[in-house]
Design a protein around this nucleic acid. Structure first.
Length: 422
RNA sequence: CGGGAAGUAGCGCAGCUGGCUAGCGCGCAACGUUCGGGACGUUGAGGUCGGGGGUUCAAAUCCCCCCUUCCCGACCA
Protein backbone atom coordinates (compact mmCIF):
# COMPACT_ATOMS: atom_id res chain seq x y z
CA UNK A 1 0.00 0.00 0.00
CA UNK A 2 1.28 3.45 -0.92
CA UNK A 3 0.50 6.22 1.54
CA UNK A 4 -0.18 8.71 -1.24
CA UNK A 5 -3.02 6.51 -2.50
CA UNK A 6 -4.26 5.48 0.94
CA UNK A 7 -6.22 7.45 3.54
CA UNK A 8 -4.37 8.20 6.76
CA UNK A 9 -5.44 11.60 8.08
CA UNK A 10 -2.94 12.14 10.89
CA UNK A 11 -3.24 15.09 13.23
CA UNK A 12 -0.38 17.09 14.67
CA UNK A 13 -2.29 18.07 17.77
CA UNK A 14 -4.72 16.18 19.95
CA UNK A 15 -8.31 17.25 19.33
CA UNK A 16 -9.82 19.37 22.08
CA UNK A 17 -11.62 17.62 24.89
CA UNK A 18 -9.78 14.32 24.67
CA UNK A 19 -8.36 12.92 27.87
CA UNK A 20 -7.41 9.29 27.39
CA UNK A 21 -4.10 8.63 25.66
CA UNK A 22 -5.67 5.92 23.54
CA UNK A 23 -8.45 8.29 22.51
CA UNK A 24 -5.93 10.95 21.48
CA UNK A 25 -3.72 8.53 19.59
CA UNK A 26 -6.65 6.85 17.85
CA UNK A 27 -7.63 10.26 16.50
CA UNK A 28 -4.14 11.59 15.85
CA UNK A 29 -2.94 8.48 14.04
CA UNK A 30 -5.96 8.56 11.77
CA UNK A 31 -7.46 5.31 13.06
CA UNK A 32 -10.95 6.48 13.94
CA UNK A 33 -13.22 9.47 13.55
CA UNK A 34 -16.08 10.44 15.82
CA UNK A 35 -19.49 10.86 14.20
CA UNK A 36 -21.23 11.76 17.45
CA UNK A 37 -20.61 10.94 21.10
CA UNK A 38 -19.85 7.24 21.43
CA UNK A 39 -20.17 6.53 17.71
CA UNK A 40 -17.04 6.10 15.63
CA UNK A 41 -15.95 5.44 12.08
CA UNK A 42 -13.01 3.09 11.71
CA UNK A 43 -10.74 4.67 9.14
CA UNK A 44 -8.67 2.41 6.88
CA UNK A 45 -5.73 2.09 9.27
CA UNK A 46 -7.96 1.56 12.30
CA UNK A 47 -10.05 -0.93 10.40
CA UNK A 48 -6.95 -2.96 9.64
CA UNK A 49 -6.13 -3.09 13.33
CA UNK A 50 -9.68 -4.10 14.17
CA UNK A 51 -9.52 -6.86 11.56
CA UNK A 52 -6.22 -8.07 12.98
CA UNK A 53 -7.65 -8.29 16.48
CA UNK A 54 -10.63 -10.12 15.03
CA UNK A 55 -8.33 -12.52 13.23
CA UNK A 56 -6.59 -13.49 16.44
CA UNK A 57 -9.93 -13.98 18.15
CA UNK A 58 -11.31 -16.05 15.27
CA UNK A 59 -8.28 -18.30 15.21
CA UNK A 60 -8.52 -19.03 18.91
CA UNK A 61 -12.28 -19.42 18.87
CA UNK A 62 -12.14 -21.81 15.94
CA UNK A 63 -9.33 -23.73 17.61
CA UNK A 64 -11.52 -24.05 20.69
CA UNK A 65 -14.25 -25.64 18.61
CA UNK A 66 -16.60 -22.68 18.30
CA UNK A 67 -18.51 -22.14 15.04
CA UNK A 68 -18.84 -18.62 13.70
CA UNK A 69 -22.19 -17.28 12.58
CA UNK A 70 -23.68 -13.84 12.16
CA UNK A 71 -26.88 -12.81 13.88
CA UNK A 72 -28.99 -9.72 13.25
CA UNK A 73 -28.63 -6.58 15.32
CA UNK A 74 -32.27 -5.72 14.68
CA UNK A 75 -34.46 -7.63 17.12
CA UNK A 76 -38.19 -7.83 17.77
CA UNK A 77 -38.77 -6.66 21.33
CA UNK A 78 -41.18 -9.57 21.71
CA UNK A 79 -38.21 -11.92 21.97
CA UNK A 80 -36.78 -9.94 24.87
CA UNK A 81 -40.08 -10.07 26.69
CA UNK A 82 -39.72 -13.84 26.92
CA UNK A 83 -36.89 -13.44 29.42
CA UNK A 84 -38.00 -10.17 30.95
CA UNK A 85 -34.80 -8.50 29.88
CA UNK A 86 -36.74 -5.89 27.91
CA UNK A 87 -37.23 -4.42 31.40
CA UNK A 88 -33.88 -5.35 32.98
CA UNK A 89 -31.92 -3.76 30.14
CA UNK A 90 -34.35 -1.02 29.20
CA UNK A 91 -31.91 1.74 30.11
CA UNK A 92 -29.24 0.55 27.70
CA UNK A 93 -31.51 -0.73 24.96
CA UNK A 94 -32.14 1.42 21.91
CA UNK A 95 -35.81 0.84 21.13
CA UNK A 96 -38.19 2.10 18.50
CA UNK A 97 -41.19 1.16 16.43
CA UNK A 98 -40.76 0.17 12.83
CA UNK A 99 -43.03 1.25 10.00
CA UNK A 100 -45.57 -1.43 10.81
CA UNK A 101 -45.68 -0.35 14.41
CA UNK A 102 -43.75 -3.38 15.69
CA UNK A 103 -41.61 -2.73 18.75
CA UNK A 104 -38.00 -3.32 17.85
CA UNK A 105 -34.60 -2.87 19.46
CA UNK A 106 -30.97 -2.82 18.45
CA UNK A 107 -29.27 -5.73 20.17
CA UNK A 108 -27.17 -4.85 23.21
CA UNK A 109 -26.26 -8.57 23.45
CA UNK A 110 -27.55 -11.79 21.90
CA UNK A 111 -28.53 -14.43 24.44
CA UNK A 112 -32.18 -14.32 23.46
CA UNK A 113 -31.50 -14.45 19.74
CA UNK A 114 -29.03 -17.31 19.92
CA UNK A 115 -31.23 -19.29 22.28
CA UNK A 116 -34.16 -18.84 19.94
CA UNK A 117 -31.98 -20.07 17.11
CA UNK A 118 -30.67 -23.13 18.90
CA UNK A 119 -34.04 -24.26 20.17
CA UNK A 120 -35.19 -24.53 16.57
CA UNK A 121 -32.46 -26.96 15.64
CA UNK A 122 -31.43 -28.85 18.75
CA UNK A 123 -33.81 -31.52 19.98
CA UNK A 124 -31.53 -34.25 21.24
CA UNK A 125 -28.58 -34.65 23.59
CA UNK A 126 -26.85 -36.19 20.57
CA UNK A 127 -26.66 -32.70 19.03
CA UNK A 128 -24.84 -31.28 22.05
CA UNK A 129 -22.50 -29.71 22.91
CA UNK A 130 -22.28 -26.83 20.50
CA UNK A 131 -20.51 -23.48 20.73
CA UNK A 132 -21.53 -20.61 18.46
CA UNK A 133 -19.94 -17.21 18.18
CA UNK A 134 -20.07 -14.03 16.19
CA UNK A 135 -18.18 -10.78 15.85
CA UNK A 136 -20.74 -8.10 15.48
CA UNK A 137 -21.89 -4.60 16.29
CA UNK A 138 -23.63 -4.09 19.62
CA UNK A 139 -25.72 -1.09 20.59
CA UNK A 140 -25.94 0.31 24.09
CA UNK A 141 -27.52 3.60 24.91
CA UNK A 142 -24.76 4.71 27.25
CA UNK A 143 -25.77 7.71 29.30
CA UNK A 144 -22.19 8.71 29.24
CA UNK A 145 -19.98 7.48 26.44
CA UNK A 146 -16.39 7.82 27.54
CA UNK A 147 -12.76 7.70 26.46
CA UNK A 148 -13.37 7.35 22.74
CA UNK A 149 -14.02 3.75 21.78
CA UNK A 150 -13.48 2.47 25.32
CA UNK A 151 -17.10 2.97 26.17
CA UNK A 152 -19.13 3.57 23.06
CA UNK A 153 -22.81 3.39 22.18
CA UNK A 154 -22.05 1.32 19.10
CA UNK A 155 -19.14 -1.08 19.35
CA UNK A 156 -17.77 -4.37 18.12
CA UNK A 157 -18.09 -7.43 20.31
CA UNK A 158 -17.17 -11.05 19.99
CA UNK A 159 -19.88 -13.02 21.72
CA UNK A 160 -19.85 -16.79 22.06
CA UNK A 161 -22.49 -19.10 23.48
CA UNK A 162 -22.07 -22.69 24.63
CA UNK A 163 -24.87 -25.24 24.83
CA UNK A 164 -24.46 -28.38 26.90
CA UNK A 165 -26.50 -31.29 28.14
CA UNK A 166 -25.14 -31.11 31.69
CA UNK A 167 -23.10 -29.11 34.17
CA UNK A 168 -19.96 -31.12 33.48
CA UNK A 169 -20.15 -30.18 29.83
CA UNK A 170 -20.54 -26.53 30.72
CA UNK A 171 -17.50 -26.68 33.01
CA UNK A 172 -15.48 -28.14 30.18
CA UNK A 173 -16.50 -25.52 27.65
CA UNK A 174 -16.10 -22.76 30.20
CA UNK A 175 -12.54 -23.86 30.88
CA UNK A 176 -11.90 -24.14 27.16
CA UNK A 177 -13.10 -20.60 26.60
CA UNK A 178 -11.01 -19.29 29.46
CA UNK A 179 -7.94 -20.85 27.88
CA UNK A 180 -8.83 -19.39 24.49
CA UNK A 181 -9.22 -15.97 26.10
CA UNK A 182 -5.85 -16.20 27.79
CA UNK A 183 -4.30 -17.11 24.42
CA UNK A 184 -6.01 -14.22 22.66
CA UNK A 185 -4.86 -11.60 25.13
CA UNK A 186 -1.37 -13.02 25.26
CA UNK A 187 -1.06 -12.86 21.48
CA UNK A 188 -2.17 -9.23 21.61
CA UNK A 189 0.40 -8.38 24.28
CA UNK A 190 -2.21 -7.63 26.90
CA UNK A 191 -1.35 -8.76 30.40
CA UNK A 192 -4.79 -9.66 31.72
CA UNK A 193 -5.91 -10.43 35.23
CA UNK A 194 -8.72 -12.97 35.47
CA UNK A 195 -11.00 -12.33 38.39
CA UNK A 196 -14.20 -13.88 39.66
CA UNK A 197 -17.01 -11.41 39.11
CA UNK A 198 -20.63 -10.60 39.57
CA UNK A 199 -22.90 -11.82 36.81
CA UNK A 200 -25.15 -8.78 36.86
CA UNK A 201 -27.97 -8.68 34.36
CA UNK A 202 -26.57 -11.65 32.46
CA UNK A 203 -27.65 -14.12 35.09
CA UNK A 204 -26.02 -17.31 36.24
CA UNK A 205 -23.82 -17.91 39.27
CA UNK A 206 -20.24 -18.09 38.09
CA UNK A 207 -18.49 -15.51 35.96
CA UNK A 208 -14.99 -14.24 35.38
CA UNK A 209 -13.75 -10.95 34.04
CA UNK A 210 -10.60 -10.41 32.02
CA UNK A 211 -9.12 -7.14 33.13
CA UNK A 212 -6.05 -5.22 32.08
CA UNK A 213 -4.66 -2.68 34.54
CA UNK A 214 -4.86 0.73 32.88
CA UNK A 215 -5.15 4.32 34.06
CA UNK A 216 -8.47 4.89 32.35
CA UNK A 217 -9.98 1.70 33.69
CA UNK A 218 -13.46 1.91 35.16
CA UNK A 219 -12.97 -1.24 37.22
CA UNK A 220 -10.19 -2.15 39.63
CA UNK A 221 -7.74 -4.95 40.34
CA UNK A 222 -5.16 -5.60 43.06
CA UNK A 223 -1.54 -5.30 41.99
CA UNK A 224 1.49 -6.22 44.12
CA UNK A 225 4.41 -3.82 43.89
CA UNK A 226 6.87 -6.44 45.13
CA UNK A 227 6.06 -9.45 42.98
CA UNK A 228 4.08 -10.33 39.87
CA UNK A 229 0.87 -10.96 41.77
CA UNK A 230 -2.32 -9.56 40.35
CA UNK A 231 -5.80 -10.35 41.53
CA UNK A 232 -9.31 -9.16 41.98
CA UNK A 233 -9.90 -5.98 43.93
CA UNK A 234 -11.59 -8.02 46.65
CA UNK A 235 -8.16 -9.32 47.68
CA UNK A 236 -7.46 -5.88 49.09
CA UNK A 237 -10.23 -6.32 51.62
CA UNK A 238 -9.58 -9.92 52.55
CA UNK A 239 -5.78 -9.68 52.61
CA UNK A 240 -5.63 -6.16 54.04
CA UNK A 241 -2.74 -5.02 51.91
CA UNK A 242 -0.61 -8.11 52.36
CA UNK A 243 0.21 -9.88 49.11
CA UNK A 244 -1.06 -13.47 49.22
CA UNK A 245 1.82 -14.54 46.99
CA UNK A 246 4.96 -12.92 48.45
CA UNK A 247 3.68 -11.71 51.81
CA UNK A 248 4.94 -8.18 51.31
CA UNK A 249 2.71 -5.34 52.38
CA UNK A 250 2.80 -3.80 48.96
CA UNK A 251 -0.61 -4.50 47.55
CA UNK A 252 -2.28 -1.62 45.77
CA UNK A 253 -5.49 -0.97 43.93
CA UNK A 254 -5.12 -0.27 40.24
CA UNK A 255 -7.81 0.88 37.84
CA UNK A 256 -8.45 -1.72 35.17
CA UNK A 257 -10.31 -2.08 31.90
CA UNK A 258 -12.67 -4.99 31.47
CA UNK A 259 -11.91 -6.55 28.10
CA UNK A 260 -13.74 -9.84 28.42
CA UNK A 261 -16.32 -11.49 30.58
CA UNK A 262 -17.37 -15.13 30.64
CA UNK A 263 -20.49 -16.48 32.34
CA UNK A 264 -21.90 -19.82 33.35
CA UNK A 265 -25.50 -19.02 32.61
CA UNK A 266 -27.09 -22.33 33.41
CA UNK A 267 -30.72 -22.57 32.29
CA UNK A 268 -31.83 -18.98 32.70
CA UNK A 269 -32.46 -18.45 28.99
CA UNK A 270 -33.16 -21.99 27.89
CA UNK A 271 -35.84 -22.38 30.56
CA UNK A 272 -37.48 -19.04 29.84
CA UNK A 273 -37.41 -19.59 26.08
CA UNK A 274 -38.13 -23.32 26.20
CA UNK A 275 -34.88 -24.38 24.57
CA UNK A 276 -35.18 -28.04 25.54
CA UNK A 277 -33.62 -31.31 24.47
CA UNK A 278 -34.40 -34.95 25.05
CA UNK A 279 -31.87 -36.81 27.21
CA UNK A 280 -31.05 -40.53 27.05
CA UNK A 281 -34.05 -41.33 29.19
CA UNK A 282 -36.32 -39.48 26.82
CA UNK A 283 -36.89 -36.69 29.30
CA UNK A 284 -37.02 -33.04 28.29
CA UNK A 285 -34.30 -30.88 29.82
CA UNK A 286 -33.35 -27.23 29.38
CA UNK A 287 -30.01 -26.76 27.65
CA UNK A 288 -27.18 -25.66 29.95
CA UNK A 289 -25.69 -22.45 28.62
CA UNK A 290 -22.59 -20.31 28.94
CA UNK A 291 -21.75 -17.04 27.27
CA UNK A 292 -18.41 -15.43 26.55
CA UNK A 293 -17.80 -11.86 25.46
CA UNK A 294 -14.83 -9.80 24.33
CA UNK A 295 -15.10 -6.09 23.64
CA UNK A 296 -13.18 -6.16 20.37
CA UNK A 297 -13.08 -2.43 19.78
CA UNK A 298 -12.22 -1.84 23.43
CA UNK A 299 -9.30 -4.22 23.00
CA UNK A 300 -7.95 -1.93 20.30
CA UNK A 301 -8.06 0.99 22.75
CA UNK A 302 -6.47 -1.14 25.47
CA UNK A 303 -3.58 -2.12 23.21
CA UNK A 304 -2.83 1.53 22.54
CA UNK A 305 -3.24 2.38 26.21
CA UNK A 306 -0.58 -0.22 27.05
CA UNK A 307 1.71 0.16 24.05
CA UNK A 308 2.71 3.73 23.30
CA UNK A 309 5.34 6.32 24.09
CA UNK A 310 5.42 10.11 23.90
CA UNK A 311 5.73 9.96 20.12
CA UNK A 312 2.90 7.60 19.36
CA UNK A 313 1.64 4.06 19.18
CA UNK A 314 3.88 0.98 19.33
CA UNK A 315 1.79 -1.81 17.83
CA UNK A 316 2.32 -5.37 18.93
CA UNK A 317 3.01 -7.44 15.85
CA UNK A 318 -0.33 -9.27 15.89
CA UNK A 319 -2.37 -6.06 15.84
CA UNK A 320 -0.17 -3.84 13.67
CA UNK A 321 -1.94 -2.41 10.61
CA UNK A 322 1.19 -3.13 8.57
CA UNK A 323 4.32 -5.14 9.29
CA UNK A 324 6.71 -2.69 7.71
CA UNK A 325 6.69 0.96 6.75
CA UNK A 326 9.07 1.99 4.02
CA UNK A 327 9.81 5.69 4.27
CA UNK A 328 11.35 7.37 1.25
CA UNK A 329 13.50 10.49 1.30
CA UNK A 330 14.44 11.15 -2.31
CA UNK A 331 16.19 14.23 -3.59
CA UNK A 332 14.55 16.45 -6.25
CA UNK A 333 15.75 14.41 -9.23
CA UNK A 334 16.19 11.17 -7.26
CA UNK A 335 19.58 10.56 -8.79
CA UNK A 336 20.26 8.00 -6.05
CA UNK A 337 17.31 5.83 -7.09
CA UNK A 338 15.38 6.00 -3.82
CA UNK A 339 11.96 5.54 -5.38
CA UNK A 340 12.91 2.57 -7.56
CA UNK A 341 14.61 0.95 -4.56
CA UNK A 342 11.46 1.44 -2.50
CA UNK A 343 9.27 -0.08 -5.20
CA UNK A 344 11.59 -3.05 -5.53
CA UNK A 345 11.72 -3.67 -1.79
CA UNK A 346 7.95 -3.28 -1.55
CA UNK A 347 7.49 -5.87 -4.26
CA UNK A 348 9.87 -8.34 -2.61
CA UNK A 349 8.41 -7.98 0.90
CA UNK A 350 4.85 -8.21 -0.40
CA UNK A 351 5.73 -11.38 -2.28
CA UNK A 352 6.94 -12.81 1.01
CA UNK A 353 3.52 -12.16 2.45
CA UNK A 354 4.26 -9.05 4.47
CA UNK A 355 1.90 -6.11 4.76
CA UNK A 356 3.88 -3.09 3.68
CA UNK A 357 3.07 0.60 3.74
CA UNK A 358 5.24 2.93 1.68
CA UNK A 359 5.28 6.54 2.78
CA UNK A 360 5.93 7.96 -0.66
CA UNK A 361 4.53 11.40 0.12
CA UNK A 362 6.59 14.31 -1.12
CA UNK A 363 6.72 15.77 2.38
CA UNK A 364 9.54 16.89 4.59
CA UNK A 365 11.57 14.22 6.40
CA UNK A 366 10.47 15.54 9.77
CA UNK A 367 6.84 15.07 9.04
CA UNK A 368 7.33 11.59 7.63
CA UNK A 369 9.43 10.46 10.60
CA UNK A 370 6.95 11.88 13.08
CA UNK A 371 4.01 10.28 11.33
CA UNK A 372 5.85 6.96 11.28
CA UNK A 373 6.39 7.17 15.05
CA UNK A 374 2.76 8.18 15.50
CA UNK A 375 1.17 5.33 13.58
CA UNK A 376 3.61 2.91 15.16
CA UNK A 377 4.26 0.22 12.55
CA UNK A 378 6.75 -2.27 14.09
CA UNK A 379 9.55 -1.85 11.54
CA UNK A 380 10.50 1.34 9.78
CA UNK A 381 12.68 1.10 6.73
CA UNK A 382 14.15 4.42 5.62
CA UNK A 383 15.42 4.70 2.09
CA UNK A 384 17.13 8.08 1.83
CA UNK A 385 19.37 9.71 -0.71
CA UNK A 386 22.37 9.87 1.61
CA UNK A 387 22.41 6.23 2.62
CA UNK A 388 21.45 5.15 -0.88
CA UNK A 389 24.51 6.92 -2.23
CA UNK A 390 26.44 4.31 -0.23
CA UNK A 391 24.02 1.58 -1.31
CA UNK A 392 22.60 1.33 2.20
CA UNK A 393 19.16 1.19 3.75
CA UNK A 394 18.21 1.88 7.36
CA UNK A 395 15.97 -0.40 9.40
CA UNK A 396 14.60 0.74 12.74
CA UNK A 397 12.50 -1.11 15.30
CA UNK A 398 9.70 1.12 16.58
CA UNK A 399 9.51 -0.54 19.97
CA UNK A 400 13.17 -0.60 20.97
CA UNK A 401 14.58 2.15 18.78
CA UNK A 402 17.26 -0.29 17.59
CA UNK A 403 18.59 0.80 14.22
CA UNK A 404 20.76 -0.90 11.63
CA UNK A 405 22.20 0.08 8.28
CA UNK A 406 22.31 -2.73 5.76
CA UNK A 407 23.37 -3.00 2.13
CA UNK A 408 20.41 -2.59 -0.21
CA UNK A 409 20.66 -6.16 -1.49
CA UNK A 410 20.43 -7.59 2.02
CA UNK A 411 17.58 -5.40 3.25
CA UNK A 412 14.77 -7.80 2.37
CA UNK A 413 16.37 -10.70 4.16
CA UNK A 414 17.20 -8.67 7.23
CA UNK A 415 13.67 -7.31 7.46
CA UNK A 416 12.31 -10.83 7.27
CA UNK A 417 14.58 -11.90 10.14
CA UNK A 418 13.73 -8.88 12.25
CA UNK A 419 9.99 -9.35 11.75
CA UNK A 420 10.29 -12.94 12.85
CA UNK A 421 11.95 -11.83 16.08
CA UNK A 422 9.30 -9.30 17.03
C1' C B 1 -29.78 11.43 35.12
C1' G B 2 -27.10 15.15 38.99
C1' G B 3 -22.57 18.51 39.16
C1' G B 4 -18.76 21.23 36.33
C1' A B 5 -16.38 23.12 31.75
C1' A B 6 -16.53 24.31 26.69
C1' G B 7 -18.60 25.40 21.46
C1' U B 8 -15.24 31.29 16.71
C1' A B 9 -12.17 28.24 9.18
C1' G B 10 -10.46 21.06 8.42
C1' C B 11 -7.40 21.06 13.49
C1' G B 12 -5.45 23.97 17.87
C1' C B 13 -6.68 28.71 19.80
C1' A B 14 -7.12 34.44 20.67
C1' G B 15 -10.86 38.18 20.59
C1' C B 16 -15.80 38.55 24.76
C1' U B 17 -16.30 44.84 30.67
C1' G B 18 -20.88 45.83 23.21
C1' G B 19 -17.93 49.62 18.51
C1' C B 20 -14.16 49.99 12.38
C1' U B 21 -13.55 45.00 7.17
C1' A B 22 -13.53 38.68 12.95
C1' G B 23 -7.84 37.42 13.88
C1' C B 24 -3.33 34.02 14.93
C1' G B 25 -0.73 29.19 14.38
C1' C B 26 -1.09 24.55 11.83
C1' G B 27 -3.21 22.47 7.62
C1' C B 28 -4.98 23.47 2.38
C1' A B 29 -3.98 25.70 -3.19
C1' A B 30 -0.21 27.98 -6.61
C1' C B 31 4.89 29.38 -7.62
C1' G B 32 10.00 29.47 -6.17
C1' U B 33 13.86 27.87 -2.83
C1' U B 34 14.70 23.61 0.36
C1' C B 35 15.37 18.13 1.27
C1' G B 36 17.49 12.66 7.36
C1' G B 37 13.26 14.60 12.76
C1' G B 38 6.68 18.34 11.88
C1' A B 39 11.67 23.72 6.34
C1' C B 40 11.41 29.03 4.19
C1' G B 41 9.44 33.05 1.13
C1' U B 42 5.49 35.23 -1.86
C1' U B 43 0.42 34.97 -3.20
C1' G B 44 -4.33 32.87 -2.28
C1' A B 45 -8.84 30.07 -0.86
C1' G B 46 -11.58 28.91 3.29
C1' G B 47 -16.41 31.69 8.53
C1' U B 48 -24.62 30.89 9.35
C1' C B 49 -18.66 33.22 15.61
C1' G B 50 -23.39 25.91 17.78
C1' G B 51 -29.03 27.29 16.96
C1' G B 52 -33.27 30.39 18.16
C1' G B 53 -35.24 34.53 20.62
C1' G B 54 -34.41 39.21 23.24
C1' U B 55 -31.90 44.09 24.75
C1' U B 56 -29.43 48.01 21.72
C1' C B 57 -28.14 53.02 16.99
C1' A B 58 -24.83 48.70 17.03
C1' A B 59 -24.09 41.73 19.48
C1' A B 60 -18.84 36.68 18.51
C1' U B 61 -19.17 40.03 22.94
C1' C B 62 -24.96 41.36 27.37
C1' C B 63 -29.80 38.41 28.81
C1' C B 64 -33.19 33.97 28.13
C1' C B 65 -34.24 29.15 25.95
C1' C B 66 -32.45 25.01 23.29
C1' C B 67 -28.64 21.80 21.00
C1' U B 68 -23.85 19.59 21.06
C1' U B 69 -19.15 17.91 23.11
C1' C B 70 -15.81 16.89 27.18
C1' C B 71 -14.73 15.91 32.51
C1' C B 72 -16.50 14.12 37.69
C1' G B 73 -20.43 11.16 39.78
C1' A B 74 -24.73 7.60 39.30
C1' C B 75 -25.32 3.56 35.77
C1' C B 76 -22.65 -0.21 32.97
C1' A B 77 -24.57 -7.20 29.62
Amino acid sequence: MYWSKYFIPTLKEAPAGTEAISHQLLLRAGLVHMLTAGVYTYLPLGYRVLKNVERVIRQEMNAAGAAELFMPCLHPLELWKQTGRDEVLKDVMIRFKDGRGREMCLGPTHEEVVTDLVKNFVQSYRQLPVILYQIQTKFRDEMRARFGIVRACEFIMKDAYSFDRDAAGLQKNYARMETAYRNIFKRLDLDVVVVAADSGAMGGKVSHEFMVPAEIGEDAVAVCGSCAFRGGASVLETAGGVCPQCGQKNLAKSPALELGHIFQLGVKYSAAQQALFLDEKGERQPIIMGCYGIGVSRVVAAIIEKHHDEKGIIWPKAAAPFDVEILTLPGPDDAEGVEPAARELYRALTEWGMDVLVDDRPDSPGRKFNDADLIGIPLRVTIGRKNMAQGQIEIKVRGTGAMVLVPQQEAGGRIKEMIAKL
